[in-house]
Measured scan of single mutants.
Amino acid sequence: MASQGTKRSYEQMETDGERQNATEIRASVGKMIDGIGRFYIQMCTELKLSDYEGRLIQNSLTIERMVLSAFDERRNKYLEEHPSAGKDPKKTGGPIYKRVDRKWMRELVLYDKEEIRRIWRQANNGDDATAGLTHMMIWHSNLNDTTYQRTRALVRTGMDPRMCSLMQGSTLPRRSGAAGAAVKGVGTMVMELIRMIKRGINDRNFWRGENGRKTRSAYERMCNILKGKFQTAAQRAMMDQVRESRNPGNAEIEDLIFLARSALILRGSVAHKSCLPACVYGPAVASGYDFEKEGYSLVGIDPFKLLQNSQVYSLIRPNENPAHKSQLVWMACNSAAFEDLRVLSFIRGTKVSPRGKLSTRGVQIASNENMDAMESSTLELRSRYWAIRTRSGGNTNQQRASAGQISVQPAFSVQRNLPFDKPTIMAAFTGNTEGRTSDMRAEIIRMMEGAKPEEMSFQGRGVFELSDERAANPIVPSFDMSNEGSYFFGDNAEEYDN
């Protein structure tokens, strides 16, 4: 993207840094990872977990959730003011799984939030270390993106479920800051804005008074975040219109849905970061690795190297396929839920299948599930090659597409044709070009129609051997075009429920 120079890199967003050079960025990201790792080690000690239990991804998720809940100030305040039966607002906890007599047992633990905050700050040299908290939120978000298709949420806001490739980060909490905003897809931002506008339509006082002023500035800020994701002048001009509207209503909703559809071809720039579970960072720190000293990046080879040398386990339900569970977590670790499966298959070195073909449910185990038949197995999170994460949407291309997802959002900077089903997408653009945004709409449609099938995206960008740390010898991959490109292809993934 041309304006790259004016933006802070995501590592800076990730670490609240002012302008830093590459070495400083690597050190501050490393410091953040160190903090998460030290916190995780301490929690495993508190909970008396064995090494194996500490490497269980379900335990990692519970521990991450506990610290996120302990620092969720708004919710904590709300819980104190609106006490609900049987919930102690000062405590947080969740299921911890232990191996007892050759069987997995679930144990519900409860801790004072104050105590968890103390352990977290102690692991982070006394700081609140917001960057580390956001990092864990993005890992949870990436896992949700890989596990669930947001059909219901899309339909509720009037969008087409086939636009799911635009929904990265749709389950990120509001408090995820600049680093969170960077990884949100165009569809996620559109959905947040539509929800806001709908509230304004239904509630006369939404934009009024002292609160209304705050609401208005939040609305304009979200519009600017979305505008910054678009790469064409016409899309940005249309966002200006939406932002400046005196009284946002149905016309703005129409414009936003139009823009979301246009992003299936004229893709937005959305950041991709490899955020790993805390149970990967903990053992690495415990083994003596100093992330701050060595430096770390979320968008280069580092996460690949770390996963190459990590042992992570997962509980497996009786009829689940461990290899499929591994694929789910591998995609989440690489922030690749909406990437082209052919690119992923090449990088991973084994075939990556669409969601609907995987015999696996989510990673988390519900409290009512029976533990008797639970097994555990090693997650295979290694890769054959590594590639640089991208934040450009890439230019655009036609490809055989599917009944489910009709476009992709690249996660890796790797040369390819970008699949999208042009006739299906263009069919949504018939007729409606009147109104105050008509010239911009016409211009956007013209650009979409001009998108050429034979153009290559990320020209000359390749993948790298894991021994090639400096990215000196790019390998331009070859793809098996007979395979499906979309992950949520004609899909039956479970729906995400809060």
Rank of each mutant, 00 (worst) to 15 (best):
T6W: 11
R8F: 11
S9E: 10
E11W: 07
D16E: 13
T23Y: 01
I25S: 01
G30Q: 09
G30P: 02
K31N: 03
I33Q: 03
I41W: 04
E53P: 00
A70W: 09
E80W: 14
E80T: 01
H82W: 03
G94E: 09
G94L: 03
V109P: 03
R118P: 06
I119R: 06
I119H: 02
W120E: 11
D128T: 13
A131Q: 15
L133A: 05
M137K: 14
S141L: 03
D145H: 01
R152D: 11
G158Y: 00
P161V: 01
P161L: 12
T171K: 09
R174Q: 13
A179Q: 10
V190N: 13
G200L: 13
D203T: 07
R204S: 09
N205P: 04
R208L: 15
G212P: 03
E220L: 02
E220W: 11
R221S: 12
I225P: 09
R236D: 15
M238D: 06
S245H: 08
I257T: 14
L264I: 03
S269D: 10
H272E: 08
H272I: 11
C279S: 12
A286K: 13
S287R: 02
Y289K: 08
D290T: 15
D302M: 03
F304E: 04
L306C: 08
L307A: 06
Q308E: 02
E320V: 07
A323G: 04
A323S: 05
W330V: 04
A336I: 10
F338H: 09
E339H: 06
E339R: 08
R342V: 01
I347C: 12
K351Q: 09
S353G: 09
S353P: 04
G362R: 06
G362F: 11
V363E: 08
E369M: 08
S376K: 06
R382I: 14
I388A: 07
G394R: 08
R400G: 15
A411S: 12
P423F: 02
T424R: 00
A427H: 15
N432G: 15
E434R: 00
E434P: 15
E443I: 10
I445F: 07
I445N: 10
R446I: 06
R446P: 00
M448A: 14
G450P: 02
F458W: 03
E469W: 02
A472S: 02
E495K: 05
